[in-house]
Each structure stands twice: as C-alpha cells, then as structure tokens.
C-alpha cells in the first residue's frame, strides 16, 4: 500500500505546472525515502529530475516500492479540481493499475476522490554523474524567468557566460541583439534578492531558449533559482520545493556546427 498526504496541495499543483509542458507522461518512483521522477522530454534535449522526500509529507507510507506511470495531462486535470488550501492524499494498492487522489477541504466538509488509470511506461533512467561545476549562479527566480522571456524574443538561442564579475545572458536574431548583465550583488538585505556567482573557471555556453522558458514554469515553487555550468556539459537549473525536495532541469548545450 502506498499513501502520501500533503497538507499543501498547492505544492503538487505547482510541481505539475512545472513539468507538464516538457513531459506528457512520467513515472513516479515511490519508495520509503520519498517520490522520485526522472524523465527526458520527447526530443531528448532536456531531462527533468524531481525528488519529494518522505519526511516532507504529513503522512507517508510505502510498504513496497511502487512505480506509477502517470499521464501528466490527466493528472493536471485532476489536480485542478483541488483548491489550493485542500489537503491532498495520493494512494495506491501494491501493483495497482490505478492511483487515487483524495482532496479534503480544511474544514473537512468537502472530500473528493479521483481515481486515475496508471500507464505502463518503460523505465529508461539515465545516470547523472556527480559534477563539480565550474560556475554556480544563484539569482531570483522571477528575474531569471524575466530574462528568459525577454531574450526569447530575439533569438532561439541564449548564450550564458559566467565570470567572477557576474553572469551575462545574450541573444541575437533577425530583429537585432540583446545582452543582459547581472553583477554579483554586494549586500542585499534579503537572501532571495541576491545574485551570487561561485566561479572555479569562466564558462560560456549556448542553450535553446524555448527549453529555458519551459523550465521557468517552476518559478512559483521557489524564490531562488540555481544555475550550474561547466564547459561542454548540460546546464542544471534547480528550484527547491519548499522543505520537501527539489526539481532539477538538465539542458544539453548547443555547439558550433
């Protein structure tokens, strides 16, 4: 039997919002340590890796490891039926072919349950090597979303170059070119407004802007986003999910022909 109860259904709603543009379906791998998801987008250019730790749930029970193949479009429809302040419980019998979502209103006067068929998805997990990144940038998530949106008007690629001074985002296309430079902030009162750069060596990489924009659908999950880069390896865009976990997007770079 698998049962996971979350007081804030908004977390699960935001998680779905963050992945449903990139992925049509994904497997939720549940074990006693929590729920993990790893899936590539259809074009195999990006990879989503999400982790929700069991201790972040109000109630979590997983008698046997269970992998639930979910159609994310259907799951989004079901989660739209939950109010933000509802308590959500996901539950499934061992080797079940359906999963049930139960939404309880705060005063318990309204309880809804939705049963969804599970899919048989082939499990192709990729090994992600531990990497010491040459540059790790932390910046306000809203700022990053704004930059990606503004630059995507200029071209289909964004060049991200990181030096000890700061990080520069550039794009060029038919209408012209654009550069956005963010300097490291010196002393900000609020951590989540800071721009920090930890640099081992300068890095410049090029990425497709439409994937960066898809990643920023996770902005509602966290005030801060972390970008990790090393020469010739995928970019990592990471958003924390409250105290319960994280969502990491890996994006393969574009290279000179």
């Amino acid at each position: 039997m698998f049962e996971a109860r979350l007081v804030q259904s908004s977390i699960l709603k935001k998680v779905l919002e963050a992945i449903k543009d990139l992925l049509n379906e994904a497997t939720f791998d549940c074990s006693d340590s929590g729920i993990q998801l790893q899936a590539m987008d259809n074009s195999h250019v990006s990879l989503v890796s999400m982790n929700l730790r069991s201790d972040g749930f109000d109630k979590y029970r997983c008698d046997r490891n269970i992998s639930m193949g979910m159609n994310l479009g259907s799951m989004t429809k079901i989660l739209k039926c939950a109010a933000n302040e509802d308590v959500v419980t996901m539950k499934a019998q061992d080797n079940a072919d359906t999963v049930t979502f139960v939404f309880e209103s705060p005063n318990q006067e309204k309880v809804s349950d939705y049963e969804m068929k599970l899919m048989n998805l082939d499990q192709e997990h990729l090994g992600i090597p531990e990497t010491e990144y040459a540059c790790v940038v932390r910046l306000p998530a809203g700022e990053f979303a704004r930059i990606c949106r503004d630059l995507s008007q200029f071209g289909e690629s964004v060049v991200i170059s990181c030096t000890k001074e700061g990080v520069k985002f550039s794009s060029a296309g038919d209408i012209g070119s654009a550069n956005i430079k963010l300097a490291q902030t010196s002393n900000v009162d609020k951590e989540e407004l800071a721009v920090t750069v930890e640099m081992q060596e300068p890095v410049t990489l090029t990425f497709a802007s439409r994937y960066l924009n898809s990643f920023t659908k996770a902005t509602s999950l966290s005030n801060v986003v972390q970008l990790s880069m090393s020469p010739d390896v995928p970019l990592v865009v990471e958003y924390r999910i409250g105290e319960i976990g994280h969502i990491r997007y890996y994006l393969a770079p574009k290279i000179e022909d």
Binding site: L126, G127, S157, T206, P234, Y250, A252, P253
Partner: peptide
C-alpha cells in the same frame, strides 16, 4: 549551432 542530445552526456543505467 547544433543542438546536442542529453543522452550524449548521461548514459542509460
């Protein structure tokens, strides 16, 4: 510029 694939960096387990 040509787009590379994520599978050329991360191997299937």
């Amino acid at each position: 510029m040509s787009q590379t694939s994520i599978t050329s960096y991360f191997s299937k387990r």
